[in-house]
Design a binder for these strands. Structure first.
Lengths: 386, 386
DNA sequence: GGACTTACTTTTGGTGCGAAACAATTGCTG
DNA sequence: CAGCAATTGTTTCGCACCAAAAGTAAGTCC
């Protein structure tokens, strides 16, 4: 496999901002770029010329249907060559490794999953290496690898602590780099998803943006000034100490009335099991609640109120322009979205700017895609520091 | 009275950043400035020269005791001429107007208060004009006026809505400008205090900073990237809809268990009155609680827990580097600070960065000083937009 | 008093930008 | 179809700003 270059040719700050703007916001004419970046038309000629010569940007023919036939010289949009390079994203779970290959625009072009039968660091790295080799056959121009993992990651390279893999201070980036010859970034999975949504998803171009994930746990990501704010307790059980309702339920995972006890899938299943003695999947519980079964309805209602209170508090304090609700547990919104919205409204000032809430079901490939975005960022920005 | 110039001589962005750095962080040598601003030594010679020539900065002799007798050529710190210009800050309440004169560094050099016997906009402006004239006699070089007012203010000029003055859309800045000939900035009082603390106080140089005020109401200010985030519900009863404890007390001011019902001085006094039938001042209630009187102790304890929960939630979501607790109701911390801290700890992750909480008792002159800082900002930045 | 250290100044050259004139390419009008 | 208006993109020029390097100033240390 060919070793990808570590980063784009050294770009000046002006060139880089042009490149990122085109990468993130699709084909844009020079004039449009000048407007967006606050530069003069002349500067854009200067900045785009080397980018086009290096093959990073291309002039694309205005789509056949020239939409609005405006007067004047037609603009020639510029675009990145999205499939000039490919990126590999891994999501590592307790028993599976999910992989995706994406374009420079983070569009998924291939998927590949494999069960994980060992937790030995070297053997896990072997698995990742083999999967990379397999995927590289069909996608030769791989430029980098991103790995998302549930746990605490240091310097985007070392897994400091992973509860489900039972790892401590495993230099995963180095292990995989040695096996693949490609630059590797490792990051906490929630952080990766947040970066991904900030660059290419719901948080594109926003100044204040929050991501809240519900699934096996609760995850939180804060983006201010377009940059993610890192924090120490990240994915070390965030939300376990976060008390929403002091009289709420107690579960093995979180403290009484905590976000974890009220909202995560295991906790909701635990509550139903403790009350009825029967085991149900999360989807079954939601269906039973929708059908009016009293016990599931109560648990789901309580979860919805907790989520509403949580969202209201985030809105009140952070005042984000948008909150993205993601993860495997957002099915709650389909069944009890109305309760969530009511609770939010009830906990906010009537004059407050309305909450822009986006819900997104994410499967494991979305998490892997988030990791791939990290590799894209490294290539574009030239360093592993976000 | 002499009309102050509207702003400093047109400064380049580099010059302005030097001026602000010296203004906010005290006397600094050129080398130190170069380090802080990330510029070369040569650039600092270039940038400081015109500032010194224009009289805005001066070289100050290293204080007699040259502290640490370091090797090498001694540095010559630069400082602003703090009393080259004075600024006027007003805080307008229902029945009083508080005024302070400050230096460029926002040090208070004079105070002057007058009762307010009318709420007629023109007559209030007259009062402010007369107070300005009186203060201008002793402090001729007034450069600008800042007015802080409880209520909703638009464009830093028009009082859109003030519940206690019963004003709607009063162009206060214009009224006072016409009477004084000085540039006037009007702003919501909490916003003014936040700006003041961001420039000269607890929030100096911080990236993420929160101000929470407790007094007649609850105020909230969010500073991100060194800039205050404006919000629509600002001082239109913030905290009234903000439910801390669903089973908390109900007061005439706020909703059941809201921050207002639990924390504000009127609400605490109301609770005691409703329970015991007796009227006590806030200070008396705190003293009674400290002495162990059960009913006041319960109310104060509940307030402390609410404050702790509130601070924890802010910490968890905004992750500020510091929270400043200000206002007339911070006496609560003296009596029940331990309970507040315990509650904060109880609602946060053990690995989370410890909360940096600063408490500051503010009287009305502090609020007026906050308003004066707005006038300073306008002079230095050259516009009313923060 | 000479060596050394640190602070500041001067000089030089490069970079990045905007302004303005110019070229290109279309639609519209008569 | 010629001419004009509108719009995009290019070229040229000059300015503002900055870093690097070399030089100067002013002190301490031995």
């Amino acid at each position: 496999m060919t070793a990808g270059i570590a980063s784009w040719l050294p770009l000046s700050t002006g060139e880089r901002s042009v490149a990122i703007e085109v990468l993130v916001h699709g084909p844009l004419s020079r004039t449009e770029l000048a407007r967006r970046l606050g530069l003069s038309a002349g500067s854009l000629t200067r900045l785009t010329k080397p980018l086009i010569e290096s093959g990073l940007l291309v002039e694309v023919a205005e789509a056949g249907v020239s939409a609005e036939a405006r007067q004047g010289r037609p603009s020639t949009p510029l675009d990145v060559v999205a499939d000039s390079r490919y990126f590999l994203g891994f999501k590592v779970t307790e028993d599976m490794v999910y992989a995706v290959v994406t374009t420079l625009r983070s569009h998924i072009v291939a998927r590949h999953d494999r069960p994980l039968t060992t937790h030995d660091p070297a053997e896990v790295a072997d698995v990742l290496g083999e999967m990379t080799a397999a995927l590289a056959r069909d996608h030769p121009r791989l430029a980098g690898i991103g790995i998302g993992i549930g746990g605490f990651v240091q310097d985007r390279a070392v897994v400091g602590e992973s509860p489900f893999l039972l790892w401590r201070d495993v230099p995963l980036a180095e292990l995989v780099e040695r096996r693949t010859g490609l630059p590797v970034v490792v990051e906490n999975d929630v952080a990766a998803l947040v970066e991904s949504e900030t660059w290419f998803g719901a948080g594109r171009g926003l100044d204040r943006f929050v991501v809240l994930t519900i699934g096996a746990g609760v995850g939180y990501g804060l983006v201010l000034g377009g940059k993610r704010v890192p924090f120490a307790e990240e994915d070390r059980g965030f939300g376990r100490h976060w008390i929403v309702d002091p009289n709420g339920p107690l579960t093995p995972e979180g403290r009484r009335g905590s976000a974890v006890s009220l909202l995560t899938i295991p906790s909701i299943r635990y509550q139903i099991h403790a009350a009825t003695g029967r085991d149900h999947t999360y989807e079954e519980i939601l269906a039973l609640a929708a059908a009016g079964d009293p016990m599931p309805a109560r648990v789901v209602d309580e979860a919805a109120r907790a989520l509403g209170a949580l969202l209201a508090q985030i809105s009140n304090f952070v005042m984000p322009q948008k909150i993205l609700l993601a993860g495997e547990g957002v099915g709650l919104m389909d069944v009890a979205g109305k309760t969530v919205e009511e609770t939010v409204r009830d906990n906010r000032h009537p004059l407050a700017a309305p909450l822009d809430l986006e819900t997104k079901v994410s499967d494991f490939h979305d998490w892997a895609r988030g990791a791939a975005v990290l590799a894209i960022q490294v290539l574009v920005l030239g360093s592993a520091e976000g």
